[in-house]
Design a protein around this nucleic acid. Structure first.
Length: 570
RNA sequence: CGGGAAGUGGCGCAGCCUGGUAGCGCACCUGCUUUGGGAGCAGGGGGUCGUGGGUUCAAAUCCCGCCUUCCCGACCA
């Protein structure tokens, strides 16, 4: 392709609203443009990269025996009612009516549609199956952000496995796990496969593929010593035991004028250290007021509460709700004597005695609280969020917390959707069986942004050859110079004939502009054809990633470059 | 949805406080010169100042409403 004929609108300045490096650079280098919040147009260069990412994903899915489908993006509401997600999902799903006032949705994922198709299977002989597609998903995100990293309309490779039993699911799950690691390796993304919360998708096992990046939105706890790693929504650390003094015969109320926080109570004369306090959080779980209690110096992780309680929707209670029900303001709350609300207790409180907590009366606290004795029917679960430096649950070494972009996620789904859609096959004994499903996703545009995020420098993007918009660019510095333009044209032709995905920069611009543009766009190899080297019969080969330049004779250049590129392809 | 910021030509910004009919850099068009790291000179085109209302002789500027975008928190590929 010729640059002079192409639409590659590069910008010297990035739009003011772009902050993430991938966002700024993809806009500046002419890959994407925003249409409105969360919806981006892929320009020709952007689509080339997007296609290459999708091709890599597709080839690895093919390699594990997945069959590609293309399903509708618009679904009848009925399908989502059958799975229960019409009510469950809420505002994140785009919903609309057709001309007959029938409810329809824009698919945010395709479990329902694939499961509906799977209902055509009738024998165990039809299993196992792995079905995938690369399709646009729509999600009315509360907050689109960071360019392609979080959008409302995006291409996702989603695949679904159907197996007769758990062992089959395990095999499909592991096959995807391996395939995903290969995909991210080919994208030159360093991913961590981490234990994750299954969240709203349901199911029991899930693994996320995380790319470390400050612009990510997830935190991963990682142990460098033993390799333990998990999303903080799921990660656990060991909590050193605390030696409690003997308890009082019963909780004792004492005045604490003005004390509203854990810290204030820790400093208060007659108070207690944070790790000897019980923190009481009032949350609304699916509309029901509930208490979550933790050690005073521990943080509640909302996802853990959601997973542990099974609630679909969680929010902190408002001050008004709290006062109406508990009779005190936030800051003086406690679970002692509360018997009409569900109480979720963090494991770290188990067995603790002689603790201090709010009395549900402003300016009063209780001391001498013995948890098992004084708090009625708590449901024990892991609720606390791990912090950096805490001892690893496996080996005891300090954990690190790393900010990450979630690039892929695989789930063991279970039978929720196959059951809802009436998928049933007869097994070898003639018994009806509901196949078990797995669900596996990679966001194509997000992966592209993650590559941009981790492959750039001050000059611009720096694509790995596997997904670069072009593998090489021939930059003819002075078009007016016959010998340069002739040599450049020949080289461009030879490289193209040798199968190199090549761009020819034949624009009549000053050399500085052209060189800066190729660097901004991030093409891995630049062949510079200019008077200086050409006088000796040479052209220059510059590698974008390293800036290294070597001289090659005009005659040998094409073959040498093609060889070099072939060696780097994955 | 809670908190913060911002909407002036394609991009980046100034002008607003103290109202007087819009300006700068980059980009763009024409000509000449220039040509190995974002050229120079000369000429030129392009803006309902997000939007609706109000105040005023007069509004980009002051007041009120709305819309949109971005950033920080709760959700996800």
């Amino acid at each position: 392709m010729r640059w002079s004929d192409s639409f590659i609108p590069t910008l010297r300045d990035a739009p003011a609203e772009a902050e993430a490096a991938s966002h700024r650079l993809l806009v500046r280098a002419g890959f994407i443009r925003q249409l409105h919040s969360g919806h981006y147009s892929l320009l020709p260069l952007g689509l080339r990269v997007h296609n290459k990412v999708a091709d890599i994903v597709r080839s690895e899915m093919d390699a594990i025996g997945a069959q590609e489908f293309l399903l509708p993006a618009m679904h009848p509401a009925d399908l989502w009612r059958r799975s229960g997600r019409w009510d469950l999902v809420g505002a994140e799903m785009f919903r609309l009516q057709d001309r007959n006032d029938a409810d329809v949705v824009l698919g945010m994922t395709h479990e329902e549609v694939f499961a509906a198709l799977a209902a055509e299977m009738s024998s165990y002989r039809d299993l196992p199956q792995i079905w995938n597609q690369i399709q646009t998903k729509f999600r009315d995100e509360p907050r689109p952000r960071s360019g392609l990293l979080r959008v409302r309309e995006f291409m996702m490779k989603d695949s679904y496995s159907f197996d007769l039993d758990e062992a089959g699911l395990d095999a499909a799950f592991d096959a995807h796990w391996e395939a995903y690691l290969r995909i991210f390796e080919r994208l030159d993304l360093e991913v961590m496969d981490v234990q994750a919360s299954s969240g709203a998708m349901g199911g029991d096992a899930s693994v996320e593929f995380m790319v470390a990046s400050p612009v990510g939105e997830d935190d991963v706890a990682r142990c460098d010593a033993c390799g333990y790693r998990a999303n903080v929504e799921r990660a656990r650390a060991s909590v050193p035991p605390i030696d409690d003094p003997p308890s009082l015969p019963a909780p004792e109320q004492f005045p604490t004028p003005g004390v509203r926080t854990i810290d204030q109570l820790a400093d208060f004369d007659g108070g207690a250290a944070a790790d000897r306090q019980i923190k009481t959080m009032v949350m609304v779980l699916d509309g029901e007021l509930s208490l979550a209690i933790l050690r005073g110096d521990h943080q509640l992780n909302l996802q853990k509460l959601a997973d542990g309680s099974g609630a679909a929707e969680i929010r902190p209670a408002t001050a008004a709700e709290i006062t109406a029900r508990l009779g005190a303001d936030p800051g003086s709350l406690g679970a002692v004597g509360v018997s009409d609300l569900p109480i979720f207790a963090d494991e770290a409180l188990r067995g603790r005695r002689c603790m201090t907590t709010g009395a549900n009366e402003d300016d009063w606290h209780l001391r001498g609280v013995d948890i098992e004795r004084d708090i009625s029917n708590p449901r024990w679960m892991d609720l606390r969020e791990v912090g950096a430096g805490e001892p690893c649950i496996v080996c005891g070494q300090p954990l690190g917390i790393v900010r990450c972009i979630e690039a892929g996620h695989i789930f063991k789904l279970g039978r929720k959707y196959s059951e809802a859609m009436g998928v049933s096959v007869l097994d070898a004994d003639g018994e009806a069986r509901t196949p078990i499903m797995g669900s596996y996703g990679i966001g194509i545009g997000r992966a592209m942004a993650a590559v941009a995020e981790t492959h750039h420098d001050e000059k611009g993007l720096c694509w790995p050859i596997s997904v670069a918009p072009f593998e090489a660019v021939v930059a003819i510095l002075d078009l007016a110079d016959e010998s340069q333009s002739r040599a450049g044209e020949v080289l461009y032709q030879e490289l193209s004939d040798l199968g190199v995905d090549c761009l020819c920069d034949d624009r009549e611009l000053r050399p500085g502009v052209k060189l800066a543009d190729t660097e901004l766009v991030g093409i891995p190899f630049r062949i510079t054809v200019g008077a200086r080297s050409l006088a000796q019969g040479n052209v220059e080969l510059t590698e974008r990633a390293t800036g290294e330049t070597v001289l090659l004779t005009v005659e040998e250049a094409a073959a040498a470059i093609a060889g070099k590129i072939a060696a780097q392809r994955s």
